[in-house]
């Protein structure tokens, strides 16, 4: 992922994800049918689900990168973990925002404790904590070790939280979410799949840009150290 050798690949990825995103947008507004009960509002669903998927996938990558770092101690795993969290947090924030935008017309309130929405909010909090942790640890090695551990433990708790929240909801059924059922037409499924594909590509493009930024900043630190050493003689 380093250097300018894959400059072209980076550009292809960026431009490609933009194009697929355009296709997805077109499908969301032109190809997918209007949902019978909720109307056009339902179209936000394609972005909502796609960003939730990408957020979760991003945190999964961070989990894997954490394992990779602890086993190898190599900086590139930490760069991957950090970059994936930052991109993941962006997408999961979008999930929570689109979820509550959808909730307002659908159920008359900006927030419901619907399990999928709730677990997204929980993930948002967890990974904001992850970023706060990184910000308050001195020393690059220690920061990488701590955040790898946190990324691993956090990811393991997400499914546990998910089941706990779901059961909790079944005990306290939310009257508001009674009309949850949505009739899914085949065109809706096509649109959703293309959306998910577009968001995943966008994730990959942002991830590789973010990683490149981190490597560049490393390079800058190295050069500054070299300069300092030279000026000291």
């Amino acid at each position: 992922m380093r250097g300018s050798d894959n400059y072209l690949a980076q550009h292809l990825l960026t431009v490609g994800s933009g194009l697929v995103m355009l296709v997805a947008l077109g499908m969301v507004f032109l190809y997918a049918p209007r949902e019978a009960v909720m109307g056009d509002v339902q179209r936000i669903f394609y972005f909502h689900v796609a960003s939730a998927w990408v957020g979760f996938f991003g945190f999964f990558v961070t989990f894997l990168a954490g394992v990779g770092y602890l086993l190898s101690g190599q900086r590139r795993w930490d760069v991957l973990a950090l970059s994936s969290v930052e991109v993941g947090v962006t997408f999961i924030t979008m999930t929570v925002v689109t979820g509550s935008l959808w909730a307002k017309p659908a159920w008359g309130t900006y927030w419901t404790w619907e399990p999928r929405l709730t677990i997204s909010a929980v993930q948002l909090l967890i990974y904001v904590a992850y970023l706060m942790l990184r910000g308050s640890v001195e020393g690059r090695e220690q920061r990488a070790r701590f955040s790898s551990v946190y990324g691993i433990v956090a990811f393991v708790t997400v499914p546990l939280s998910w089941f706990a929240i779901r059961w909790w909801r079944t005990i306290h059924p939310d009257i508001l979410t009674g009309g949850d059922q949505m009739a899914i037409a085949p065109r809706m499924i096509h649109t959703l799949l293309v959306s998910i594909g577009a968001f995943t590509l966008l994730y990959a493009a942002l991830l590789s840009l973010r990683m490149k930024l981190e490597w560049t900043s490393d390079e800058l630190i190295r050069m500054r150290l070299k300069l300092e050493r030279r000026s000291r003689g």
């Binding site: 904590a129 706060m132 956090a154 939280s161 089941f163």
Partner: peptide, 26 residues
């Protein structure tokens, strides 16, 4: 982890609470 960070008193609940959610609910 938290005792090795700046502002450790704040860091512990921030790190711990979202991970302890299943315990709390259960």
């Amino acid at each position: 982890i938290a005792v090795n960070t700046r502002a450790r008193e704040v860091m512990l609940p921030v790190l711990l609470f979202p991970l302890a959610l299943p315990v709390l609910i259960g």
